[in-house]
Design a protein around this nucleic acid. Sequence first.
DNA 1: GTTGATTGTGAACGATCGTTCACGTATGCT
DNA 2: AGCATACGTGAACGATCGTTCACAATCAAC
Lengths: 196, 196
Amino acid sequence: MPRKRTIDGKVQALRGFYREEERVPSYAEMLALLGYRSKNAVHRLMGVLEGLGYVRRGPSGKWAFTRRLTGSIKLLGLVQAGFPSPAEEELVDVLSLDEYLVRRPEATFMLTVSGDSMIEAGIHPGDLVLIEKGRTPRNNDIVIAQVDGEWTLKYYHKDRKGCVRLEPANKNYTTIIPKQSLTIGGVVRAVVRKYE
Amino acid sequence: MPRKRTIDGKVQALRGFYREEERVPSYAEMLALLGYRSKNAVHRLMGVLEGLGYVRRGPSGKWAFTRRLTGSIKLLGLVQAGFPSPAEEELVDVLSLDEYLVRRPEATFMLTVSGDSMIEAGIHPGDLVLIEKGRTPRNNDIVIAQVDGEWTLKYYHKDRKGCVRLEPANKNYTTIIPKQSLTIGGVVRAVVRKYE
DNA sequence: GTTGATTGTGAACGATCGTTCACGTATGCT
DNA sequence: AGCATACGTGAACGATCGTTCACAATCAAC
């Protein structure tokens, strides 16, 4: 167990460095950071960390930290499974929200929701929606669409005849069946709401 | 305008490199990457990019890429403001969700919601909630609390007499007034829902 | 056409880089 | 005790690093 604890300490130190510098420290820097006095010790440690999945070598052969090290959010299980005490905090995984939510960065963007037409789907005014462009919507996807000049969020439905209808998730709104033009801006891939 | 286009091209190249290597390229690498033949050209370019906010020097003096370069999500304005055509895509900002949502990484974690007691607050079963520990809840905050042995998400309310009550956002549930013990696990800072 | 500012070239510098030696010094097992 | 393994030390290596020269090419303004 002391072995584990030692490694954990090192990892924390590296994580702290990365938070500040957003880069992998050089061996010389790790030397000071981890309390070693020989670069060789660092070299060996990196080998171990590579085995543990904390670091990897990039295509060029240089070190890169993995999400395991750089990621900032600890993902836990279900609420019922119990709540972590600060002591024994057994984490399921560490993830980066960006990586988790965004598949094609160049085609993804966010915008702020206004209006409550999708409120029963849990999309409230002020929420951020993550939209992926250039993806053909499937039935029941939430899309951002331009109908007769106005952009809105709606459920996408296409029946067998190819007839498209856009359904809100709010009883006060009505289903839209585009007459003139229908432009799909993108498919909603995620919703993010931040409090305060 | 050709000037702008040139810089944009360089930025794209650097962004591509970062996606692959997750690190800042060396001058020599940028040399090849950007088509220069002199390191000095690179050196100058970095100065320019620093002015534009694409790169910055870390505390140690080494280069680091800013979110502007590494961030993967383009943030746009309101829906009504119009929708971006791929061409003139005028972006408001580029952000990292991690940075945007997480203030204290070491005290933040996520878990999956089960149960529908907060559904009227737009928190559905299966959603991810981002929780910050060690933060004293204010009225109307959503907290994760342990009442009589079970963990739940609820609105937090404390009246002037110091009496705490936990309110669900679902008519089918009742307000909880803790009798024995009340442990606040943390305050919900954000909700994330991913489709598919 | 001349001038001045911008931008890239090419070579050079000491500093730092990652890697690899051979060699101590613990620690743990039988 | 004795031995083997694991882990850190210290020094050395060539390679690559970022920075800085002086100078050439390009462009715009007048």
